[in-house]
């Protein structure tokens, strides 16, 4: 850890260390110096509070009620499975008897006003036990307090009621926060996301997956890239190690690049030789042992040899050539 902090100070992690220190100080201050105010927990209804039914809510909130009839959440109204039959509104807002009497906003729970984690808790009352959320703990959204309602509209009707469905709308929704990623898609070589032929959720599951960066999986546990690029999936009789060990991102920038084929370097030879530069017999210690001898036979000054995959064309894996020639 000390080594880590030392490196941090030397390099660009300075900001992070400052923030960590600040966070630590705040924590200590909160824990020792004074008792902080209690976080706004969702109002726990006293025992006297009771459900009044959605038709009671309709009396004052008719516009919301009507729109809700075409939202997928309307199913809660008839759902005996979770015990909210006829109480769809109160399944999220909690028992509304006091609010119905006083007509005061503070007398009822408003999930949009809660802390993100508390909002999620309300949603997960029903949605926790669904397959979509099995990777939630691995996902960055839950860890960064991005609540369900940041993407999902609970009351809206229409085709896009609960969440954006049209490709362009899905991409817009993601781009609102991930502006830096959207900027990458303006580069010339990219996946066809700005064109609407693909969406962000084709490759990423915003609820989280077992893979890093919430990459989608296909065929149970294979990276989602192979869902579209089935010809690169294999298994090959001659595998190229990085494809299995570190994935497509080793050589490609899937969000966009100024380099052809979304490569990480403008010339193929550098993509290859940055790894294939271990001399036999030299001690590479424990760092970067995989990646064998470079092609000393080739005169790399000649353009003929500068794009390695003109010959080593089956670089994703080959069925018949150990050197990926065919």
């Amino acid at each position: 850890m000390l080594r880590l902090l030392h490196n941090s100070m030397k390099k660009s992690g300075t900001l992070a260390v400052v923030c960590c220190a600040a966070a630590l100080l705040v924590t200590v201050k909160a824990g020792v110096a004074q008792e902080p105010a209690a976080p706004a927990a969702p109002p726990t209804p006293p025992a006297a509070l009771t459900f009044v039914g959605s038709t009671t809510c309709q009396g004052c909130h008719e516009d919301i009620f009507n729109a809700f009839q075409k939202n997928r959440h309307e199913a809660v109204e008839k759902d005996k499975k979770r015990g909210f039959e006829n109480n769809a509104c109160e399944s999220c807002h909690g028992p509304g008897s006091k609010h119905a009497d006083s007509a005061t906003a503070t007398d009822i729970r408003n999930p949009a006003r809660l802390k993100p984690a508390e909002t999620d808790k309300v949603c997960l009352t029903c949605h926790l036990n669904q397959p979509t959320h099995v990777g939630r703990l691995n996902g960055a959204h839950a860890k960064n307090q991005v609540s369900c309602v940041a993407c999902h509209s609970i009351h809206k009707n229409g085709p896009e009621g609960l969440v954006a469905r049209k490709p362009a709308d899905v991409n817009q929704q993601c781009a609102k926060c991930h502006a830096d990623v959207w900027a990458s898609f303006q580069k010339p070589y990219k996946h066809r996301v700005p064109e609407g032929a693909m969406t962000c959720v084709d490759c990423h599951n915003p609820h989280g997956t077992q893979l890093a960066r919430s990459i989608q999986t296909t065929n149970a546990n294979e990276p989602g890239c192979f869902k579209c690029h089935g010809d690169k999936r294999g298994p090959f009789t001659f595998e190229h190690a990085p494809v299995r060990l570190e994935g497509c991102g080793t050589c490609h920038q899937p969000h966009g690049s100024s380099n052809p084929r979304m490569l990480t370097r403008p010339e193929v030879r550098f993509v290859c030789m940055e790894c294939h530069s271990n001399l036999p017999g030299t001690s590479v210690a424990a760092k970067g042992t995989i990646g064998t001898t470079p092609p000393g036979l080739h005169d790399l000054r000649s353009p003929r040899f500068q794009n390695c995959n003109v010959c080593h064309q089956k670089v994703h894996g080959s069925y018949v050539s150990r050197d990926f020639l065919k």
């Binding site: 080594r3 880590l4 490196n7 941090s8 390099k11 660009s12 992690g13 900001l15 992070a16 923030c19 960590c20 960055a140 960064n144 307090q145 926060c177 190690a241 990085p242 060990l245 570190e246 080793t250 940055e274 790894c275 530069s277 271990n278 590479v284 424990a286 760092k287 970067g288 042992t289 995989i290 990646g291």
Partner: peptide, 27 residues
């Protein structure tokens, strides 16, 4: 929102793999 990730690696597979790295994201 602020995220920090810092790592120290004893063993890695490739010369270009993540080794001793720091990642900071702020929004």
């Amino acid at each position: 929102n602020l995220d920090y990730e810092g790592a120290s690696s004893d063993r890695i597979y490739f010369r270009t793999s993540l080794n001793d790295y720091h990642k900071v994201r702020a929004r």
